[in-house]
Design a protein around this nucleic acid. Structure first.
Lengths: 151, 151
DNA sequence: TAGTTATTTCAGTCATGATTGAAACAACTA
DNA sequence: TAGTTGTTTCAATCATGACTGAAATAACTA
């Protein structure tokens, strides 16, 4: 298999990751491509310029996306003394962070549900309806807390 | 507390649910308001007209949103013989469905990660990096399968 | 210091899709 | 049947925000 063929396969895989990030998590396409590429690239550390070229996006777009991805802790910026280029690399626990964040947000929704129960008096059909929501929303969080992922 | 005051409180709660649906799940505001209102309204079954009035949206918007919400199984449509009005009501297991769907999508992402491992040869830093992603992505799904929510 | 290269900022374009009003339609009543 | 009321469709508007090119800035070397 030629080098270009292999690169093509990698990019097709990146595109599938991108589709996921866009459809399931509402991320912009370029953000998804960056994440996908950083998952599978070699070496792990890549400059904004390299990434821009391989995923066909502008440098300007890379700047804002990298800022976003580092701000939320999914990507880390690596600087080397004597080199003005900044390199980026996906965090080892990036997906674990994503998932923990989702769990936390579900839990917060569970708290809102709790307040809803108070609001309707705590008894009756309405309260039961909201309690059911609360239980579903906090279930996973409790489960995850009791059974953390070991690597 | 007057009836309007109580209604105001309910609507403020609905607005918090809406904010969640919009920010965390990327739903349109009106979709979020409908869900929030159907969680806390009394009676549980409400016509499109009633909902439109209380959340201040157009009938047209209600039509498309109700179609969406029933299509994905979060809301059910109730028809009564001799009454041309259609009533809507949130499904008892609506949030459980939402969560199961999210888990399934995480699992699907896990499968993509699996293929990524094959793509890079199954060994080395790259493979380990993607394997870590895979483990995080499938962890919750496995956990949930082993500890289903009992009500 | 001047020169070079990479990054960041910012104003503007563009695409997407939520929302609506008006008209068409459907279902009931008298 | 005509009248009434609720629903759906559809074309058009509107808001949002992703993305870019060009200019400004920053960081290195000689």
């Amino acid at each position: 298999m030629s080098s270009e063929e292999h690169q093509d396969r990698l990019l097709r895989w990146v595109e599938r990751v991108t589709a996921f990030c866009v459809e399931e998590w509402g991320l912009p396409p370029i953000t998804g491509r960056i994440l996908g590429w950083l998952m599978i690239c070699d070496p792990a550390e890549q400059s904004a310029g390299q990434i821009a070229e391989v995923i066909q996006a502008s440098r300007a777009s890379l700047t804002s996306n990298m800022r976003f991805l580092t701000a939320i802790g999914l990507v880390k910026k690596v600087r080397r003394p004597g080199d003005r280029t900044a390199y980026y690399c996906i965090e080892d626990d990036a997906w674990q962070k994503v998932i923990q964040r989702k769990l936390k947000s579900l839990g917060a929704f569970g708290e809102i549900a709790d307040e809803g129960v108070d609001l309707v008096g705590g008894e009756g059909h309405r309260a039961e309806r909201i309690k059911a929501a609360h239980d579903s929303l906090t279930w996973l969080q409790n489960l995850a807390a009791r059974h953390p992922l070991r690597r």
